[in-house]
Simulated scan of single mutants.
Amino acid sequence: MKYQYSHCYSDFGRDLKTLSSIFYMPTLSFSYQIKRSARATRVRIVVKADNVEVVAPLHGVSDKRIAQFVQEKRQWIEQTLAKIAQTIQVQGSPIPDVYAQGTEILYRGQMYTLAIGVTKLKRVKIDFTDCFTAYLPDGLLIEQQSDAIKKALLQWLKQQTLVQVQVAVSQHAASKKLFPRSITIKSQKSRWGSCGFQGDININWLLILAPPEVLEYVVVHELCHIQVKNHSQQFWDLVTEHLPDYKQHRRWLKTQGRSLMAFHE
């Protein structure tokens, strides 16, 4: 019997038998539920926002062996729970009303603090290292600063979107010769990306706010449309060749993507 572990956010209810049980262990910081599935060929751990599930075959693996497996993967489970909690917290964060010293900025799935500096330039300059810094012209009036920072930040985020899209294209285009004719970063209220008949790709800049792998998935999705114009099995097989775990990122967009749309201009 091989043991593997992974996390996702899907509902396995259709595939599982009703045989299940919840385990609490004093040595663990979490409880977990064992679900026995007739379709399962190995044990795997599914970490969700509200619980930990261990999916196992109906026979051949005892609860004691599963408990041992959970203990072996304890650190990974706790790290994954923490990551999910952080993601939920990020997605629940309000849009800043004012851009000033200490404002929290969402970028690539994480929150970063905004600091304020001064520049001799006549326009606001945005810099990013381990936090955001907005360098303001010395003569900029206080009542104008927030709007000026927001405008400069949006422009910077769109530029970074193009940079990261180009990185993803460079990583995935060559293997199957999926070279786009053009790449355009757009502001769209209902679409994450699109691919024209001639291979012109459009990407929503809001994806720069999502975790990096989500943006990568959308880019791969549109690249694959250069070769396959529909959503047939051939298309999804091509996506899988580039991103075997694409379903996880697709699911993230379905469950978390709406919150990003709130950041729309």
Rank of each mutant, 00 (worst) to 15 (best):
88 I>P: 00
48 K>Y: 02
65 R>C: 06
77 I>Q: 12
73 K>C: 09
91 Q>W: 10
108 R>F: 06
102 G>N: 13
34 I>G: 00
47 V>Y: 00
61 V>T: 11
30 F>K: 07
52 V>N: 04
65 R>Q: 06
30 F>H: 03
37 S>M: 09
59 H>T: 12
46 V>T: 02
58 L>H: 10
58 L>G: 00
47 V>L: 00
75 Q>E: 12
90 V>N: 03
54 V>R: 10
66 I>W: 04
88 I>A: 03
90 V>E: 14
77 I>F: 01
95 I>H: 04
56 A>E: 10
89 Q>Y: 14
65 R>N: 15
49 A>G: 00
30 F>T: 12
56 A>S: 15
107 Y>C: 11
43 V>N: 08
83 K>A: 14
31 S>V: 02
52 V>R: 02
74 R>Q: 13
57 P>M: 10
78 E>K: 05
45 I>E: 00
64 K>R: 12
75 Q>C: 04
83 K>W: 14
63 D>A: 11
63 D>T: 13
33 Q>D: 06
34 I>P: 00
98 V>T: 04
89 Q>W: 06
64 K>A: 14
35 K>V: 02
52 V>G: 01
39 R>C: 05
33 Q>G: 03
106 L>D: 04
104 E>S: 15
77 I>S: 02
94 P>Q: 14
34 I>A: 05
67 A>E: 14
29 S>R: 04
76 W>C: 02
77 I>G: 11
81 L>N: 07
90 V>D: 12
52 V>E: 09
81 L>M: 15
58 L>E: 13
39 R>T: 05
48 K>A: 08
107 Y>K: 04
42 R>T: 10
55 V>N: 12
101 Q>P: 01
78 E>L: 14
28 L>N: 05
75 Q>T: 13
76 W>V: 12
31 S>T: 10
98 V>N: 06
81 L>E: 10
56 A>N: 06
86 Q>W: 03
96 P>D: 13
33 Q>K: 12
30 F>M: 07
102 G>Q: 10
40 A>T: 03
92 G>L: 05
99 Y>E: 07
74 R>Y: 15
91 Q>P: 00
34 I>N: 01
67 A>V: 13
53 E>T: 00
37 S>P: 00
87 T>Q: 15
54 V>K: 03
36 R>W: 07
64 K>F: 15
58 L>S: 04
